[in-house]
């Protein structure tokens, strides 16, 4: 959806994001390495990566908190940096809330309410109650990390921004709060579909919520696939070493373990019908592996790159 959104109503559908060769350098450190991809409007996207993989930097670049060192970011077809309308439509919630700690809870909310065009006070009130938070004169700095994170996601959801990003929301939230967050996120998305990006490494928790999955490692984009397809892409082949080697030849082998004459290899790829047959003929067992295992195999392996 590249058409600009009307200012007179909430924006169902959200904005599409296009990244072309997006690169971010800090001195000699390459934080984001030539990422090119398109995130469709109105999708819930998971940004998966290990700590330090470049998730936060990429999200900050998408949120126009900074410019890329190289490459271009397009939101609804336009450069969001300093774009009066698009900046208001981009919301990045960092796990600690990224608050000004000497500002009160009430004022932090008031500031967001004053500046966000699609602000929904009723949703905020409901979320505050659910997370047992109070809008009062307490300074945000006096809240616990968990309360701060809950306040941050509450405000983030209440902005109803056409592009809403949550950077590792799991870090500050305990398990009950995380599931409350996932429920609320889905509820608000159903009520008003928009583009939502959640960065995390707790894949199992969010996998079913996602429509697309992006995996980045060391700043580079490894995978961008529909989440439901990715679930079927990780295969484990177990059998006689020679047979496993032969079948996996030419496939992306993420990891492999050998015990005596038996090898077990995790591969990333599609099962083109004949794989099962060839494996069965050679006495090799083929089984799917969970998304979390696929992610671990992918991001802990040198050869993937």
């Amino acid at each position: 959806m590249s058409s600009s959104t009307s200012l007179t109503e909430p924006t169902p559908g959200g904005h599409a994001l296009e990244l072309r060769d997006v690169t971010v350098r800090f001195g000699s450190t390459l934080a984001v390495d030539a990422v090119t991809t398109t995130i469709p409007a109105g999708a819930i996207v998971g940004l998966l990566g290990r700590n330090g993989a470049g998730k936060s930097t990429l999200l900050r670049t998408l949120a126009a908190h900074r410019r890329p060192s190289d490459g271009t970011v397009r939101v609804a077809g336009e450069d969001p940096y300093e774009h009066e309308r698009l900046m208001a439509d981009l919301c990045l919630v960092r796990h600690d809330g990224d608050f000004n700690l000497d500002v009160s809870v009430a004022d932090s909310i008031a500031i967001a309410a004053a500046l966000r065009p699609h602000w929904d006070g009723a949703t905020l009130d409901r979320l505050m109650e659910r997370f047992r938070l109070q809008s009062n004169r307490t300074k945000v700095g006096a809240l616990s990390l968990g309360q701060r994170a809950a306040l941050a996601v509450s405000i983030g959801i209440a902005t109803r921004s056409p592009v809403t990003m949550f950077d590792e929301p799991h870090l500050g939230l305990d398990a009950p709060s995380r599931y409350a967050f996932y429920d609320e996120l889905l509820a608000t998305y159903i009520a008003m579909p928009r583009t939502i990006i959640v960065s995390t490494h707790l894949i199992d928790e969010v996998a079913s919520l996602l429509e697309h999955v992006l995996i980045i490692d060391r700043g580079a984009l490894l995978v961008h696939e529909p989440a439901d397809e990715l679930r079927t892409r990780g295969l484990e082949l177990t059998g006689p070493s020679a047979a496993v080697d032969e079948i996996t030849g030419g496939m992306a082998v993420l990891s492999s373990r050998t015990l005596g004459p038996t090898t077990s290899a995790v591969v990333f790829g599609e099962d083109h019908g004949d794989l099962q047959d060839r494996a069965a003929a050679a006495g090799v067992e083929v089984g799917p592996i969970p998304l979390q295992d696929l992610f671990v195999a992918m991001t802990s392996q040198e050869s993937v790159r």
């Binding site: 429920d183 889905l186 579909p193 079913s208 996602l210 439901d228």
Partner: peptide, 10 residues
């Protein structure tokens, strides 16, 4: 989707 916590598109 809401009941099973699953993406509505799925």
């Amino acid at each position: 989707a809401a009941f099973h916590r699953i993406n509505p598109a799925t």
